[in-house]
């Protein structure tokens, strides 16, 4: 963690703030009565959200640039840095040209390849524990399913097939299943031993989720889809446990200075069904962060022990 640039932390915080403001709080405003003071407050909140979303976007592009630079100087090959730069280039191109046709297919294929390359490296790690490798693999599966969900209709469009692909809904639901399990896997790998204070603190958002579900499940479903893309089709207790597990990782990692907490924040901010390219990048940065300690060992043997130790949780160290 010490060798990670500070702007990864800024990215995690900015992305989380963007998610909280622009995709959760401002969207909840539609449920409130709106006297002029509330409208003024939400106009200010909306502008702040735009600013923080731009900040998160800028930092995400910088993070991809840094990942490319870091990977370029490692022994891991040239595909990951090339794919990182390619993804940034596609992102800039699509600001001026709508992503359609084979260009869109190529972009999603590039992201899919990047996810697979990072996931493959994490799975073959000789530094990380088995549970950490499993967490990275489950997260890789979630991101692969997410990309497949987007690349399949894009390929149908490009090939001018009548469609729609019948199995796309299955892919999306698989992505939700893997995304939920990846939170649990990250918790198991990085924070399954925690202090009672952490457990109690993490219970607050989980209990809020349970209360919301019991009071108004329909509205919770809407907010969940708008906010994170989760459709809540699985048993609600699993989601409540997922919220608790993610909170434990965030709180534990904050105190242990582990990048796992940043990764979970980025996963939450990226969401299951990204509407914008930057949100798709956040999930990839999260996966890369979970395999980051290994990078250090492979490229900087002298500093690997320090870095790896900083990233290890109490339970696995």
């Amino acid at each position: 963690m010490r060798s990670l640039p500070i702007y990864f932390k800024w990215l995690a915080l900015a992305a989380f703030a963007d998610w909280l403001v622009t995709r959760t709080l401002t969207r909840m405003a539609i449920f409130m009565p709106k006297p002029p003071a509330v409208i003024l407050f939400y106009q200010a909140l909306g502008f702040a959200g735009q600013a923080v979303a731009t900040l998160a976007g800028l930092l995400a592009l910088l993070a991809f640039g840094w990942m490319a630079w870091r990977e370029f100087h490692s022994a891991a090959g040239r595909f990951i840095p090339a794919a990182c730069l390619g993804a940034v280039s596609f992102n800039l191109l699509f600001l001026y040209k709508l992503p359609t046709g084979w260009l869109a297919v190529g972009y999603h294929a590039l992201l899919l390849g990047l996810v697979l390359a990072i996931g493959r490296r994490a799975a073959r790690s000789t530094v990380q524990s088995t549970s950490q490798k499993m967490a990275a693999i489950v997260l890789t599966l979630a991101l692969v399913a997410r990309e497949l969900y987007q690349i399949t209709p894009a390929a149908y469009q490009a090939a001018r097939l009548a469609g729609p692909p019948a199995f796309n809904q299955v892919i999306f639901l698989s992505a939700e299943l893997f995304a939920l399990f990846s939170l649990l896997a990250v918790w198991w790998a990085y924070a399954r031993t925690f202090t009672w204070k952490t457990g109690v603190l993490a219970s607050i958002p989980a209990l809020a989720f349970v209360a919301f579900h019991l009071l108004n499940p329909a509205m919770l479903g809407i907010i969940s889809i708008w906010s994170t893309g989760f459709t809540l089709y699985l048993p609600w207790l699993l989601y409540a446990f997922g919220v608790w597990a993610a909170s434990v990782v965030i709180f534990s990692a904050t105190w242990q200075r582990s990048p796992a907490g940043w990764a979970v924040l980025l996963l939450l901010a990226g969401g299951l069904a990204p509407q914008f390219s930057v949100q798709a990048f956040l999930g990839i940065v999260a996966l890369w962060l979970l395999s980051y300690d290994q990078n250090c060992r492979e490229t900087k043997p002298g500093t690997a022990a320090v870095t790896a130790a900083a990233g290890q949780p109490a339970s696995t160290g």
Binding site: N91, L95, P99, A104, P274, Q275, F276
Partner: peptide, 12 residues
């Protein structure tokens, strides 16, 4: 000035 492009599906 946008920094993120649309990731969603497009109807042609």
């Amino acid at each position: 000035v946008p920094l993120a492009s649309s990731q969603g599906l497009t109807l042609i």
